[in-house]
Lab assay of single mutants.
Amino acid sequence: ADDEVAKLLVDAYRKNDEDKLEEVKKRYNISDEQVKRLIRKVL
C-alpha cells in the first residue's frame, strides 16, 4: 500500500498539484514528514 500511496504523491508532486497532495494526505492520514519521505523513496 505504501508504494501505491508513494506513486500518488509523486504523481501529484510532479504535476505540482497541491490539491491532490492534500487529498492524498487526508485520505491516507499521513503527515507532511511522511509525504516527504515517501516522495524521496520514489524519486
Results as ranks from 00 to 15, higher is better:
1 A>L: 15
1 A>F: 15
1 A>E: 12
1 A>P: 14
1 A>I: 15
1 A>Q: 11
1 A>V: 15
1 A>D: 13
2 D>G: 09
2 D>F: 14
2 D>E: 12
2 D>N: 11
2 D>C: 15
2 D>A: 10
2 D>T: 12
2 D>R: 09
2 D>Q: 09
3 D>S: 12
3 D>H: 09
3 D>V: 10
3 D>P: 09
3 D>E: 11
3 D>T: 09
3 D>K: 09
3 D>N: 10
4 E>T: 10
4 E>K: 09
4 E>Q: 09
4 E>I: 13
4 E>C: 11
5 V>W: 11
5 V>M: 09
5 V>K: 03
5 V>Y: 06
5 V>T: 04
5 V>C: 10
5 V>D: 02
6 A>K: 08
6 A>D: 05
6 A>T: 12
6 A>S: 10
6 A>R: 08
7 K>S: 08
7 K>M: 11
7 K>V: 06
7 K>Y: 08
8 L>I: 10
8 L>K: 06
8 L>Y: 03
8 L>E: 09
8 L>G: 02
9 L>V: 09
9 L>G: 00
9 L>M: 02
9 L>Y: 01
9 L>T: 00
9 L>R: 00
10 V>Y: 14
10 V>I: 14
10 V>F: 13
10 V>N: 04
11 D>E: 12
11 D>V: 02
11 D>S: 03
11 D>F: 00
11 D>Y: 01
11 D>G: 01
12 A>E: 02
12 A>W: 05
12 A>T: 02
12 A>N: 01
12 A>G: 02
12 A>L: 09
12 A>M: 03
13 Y>E: 02
13 Y>S: 03
13 Y>N: 02
13 Y>I: 14
13 Y>C: 09
13 Y>W: 15
14 R>Q: 14
14 R>Y: 14
14 R>L: 15
14 R>C: 14
14 R>P: 02
14 R>D: 08
14 R>G: 07
15 K>M: 13
15 K>L: 11
15 K>E: 14
15 K>R: 13
15 K>A: 14
15 K>W: 09
15 K>F: 08
16 N>C: 13
16 N>M: 09
16 N>W: 06
16 N>F: 07
16 N>E: 07
16 N>T: 03
16 N>L: 06
16 N>Q: 10
16 N>Y: 06
16 N>H: 13
17 D>R: 04
17 D>C: 04
17 D>K: 03
17 D>M: 05
17 D>F: 04
17 D>N: 06
17 D>G: 03
17 D>L: 06
18 E>M: 15
18 E>I: 15
18 E>S: 14
18 E>P: 14
18 E>R: 15
18 E>F: 15
18 E>C: 15
18 E>D: 10
18 E>A: 14
18 E>W: 15
19 D>Y: 11
19 D>Q: 14
19 D>H: 12
19 D>E: 14
19 D>M: 12
20 K>G: 11
20 K>S: 09
20 K>R: 12
20 K>Y: 10
20 K>T: 12
20 K>A: 15
20 K>V: 10
20 K>Q: 10
21 L>W: 04
21 L>Q: 02
21 L>S: 01
21 L>G: 01
21 L>D: 00
21 L>Y: 05
22 E>M: 11
22 E>K: 10
22 E>R: 12
22 E>P: 00
23 E>R: 06
23 E>K: 07
23 E>M: 09
23 E>Q: 10
23 E>S: 07
23 E>V: 05
24 V>K: 00
24 V>R: 01
24 V>Y: 13
24 V>P: 00
24 V>M: 10
24 V>H: 04
25 K>W: 00
25 K>M: 08
25 K>Q: 06
25 K>I: 05
25 K>G: 01
25 K>L: 03
26 K>G: 05
26 K>C: 05
26 K>H: 07
26 K>F: 05
26 K>V: 08
26 K>D: 05
26 K>M: 08
27 R>P: 00
27 R>Y: 07
27 R>F: 08
27 R>A: 10
27 R>N: 06
28 Y>C: 02
28 Y>R: 01
28 Y>I: 02
28 Y>F: 12
29 N>K: 08
29 N>L: 05
29 N>E: 07
29 N>Y: 04
29 N>W: 02
30 I>M: 13
30 I>R: 01
30 I>D: 00
30 I>E: 00
30 I>W: 08
30 I>S: 00
30 I>F: 07
30 I>G: 00
30 I>V: 07
31 S>W: 01
31 S>M: 03
31 S>D: 10
31 S>V: 02
32 D>Y: 05
32 D>P: 05
32 D>A: 07
32 D>Q: 05
32 D>R: 02
32 D>M: 05
32 D>L: 05
32 D>T: 07
32 D>V: 04
32 D>G: 04
33 E>C: 06
33 E>V: 07
33 E>A: 10
33 E>L: 05
33 E>M: 06
34 Q>F: 11
34 Q>D: 14
34 Q>M: 13
34 Q>G: 06
34 Q>R: 05
34 Q>N: 08
34 Q>P: 02
35 V>M: 13
35 V>K: 01
35 V>F: 13
35 V>D: 01
35 V>E: 04
36 K>H: 11
36 K>A: 12
37 R>G: 10
37 R>E: 15
37 R>K: 12
37 R>Y: 05
37 R>A: 14
37 R>Q: 14
37 R>L: 07
38 L>A: 05
38 L>P: 00
38 L>H: 04
38 L>S: 02
38 L>M: 10
38 L>K: 02
39 I>L: 13
39 I>R: 01
39 I>N: 00
39 I>T: 01
39 I>P: 02
39 I>D: 00
39 I>S: 00
40 R>N: 14
40 R>P: 03
40 R>V: 12
40 R>D: 15
40 R>F: 10
41 K>Y: 08
41 K>I: 10
41 K>M: 14
41 K>C: 08
41 K>H: 12
41 K>Q: 13
42 V>P: 02
42 V>R: 04
42 V>M: 14
42 V>S: 09
43 L>I: 11
43 L>E: 08
43 L>V: 07
43 L>H: 05
43 L>K: 05
43 L>D: 06
43 L>Y: 06
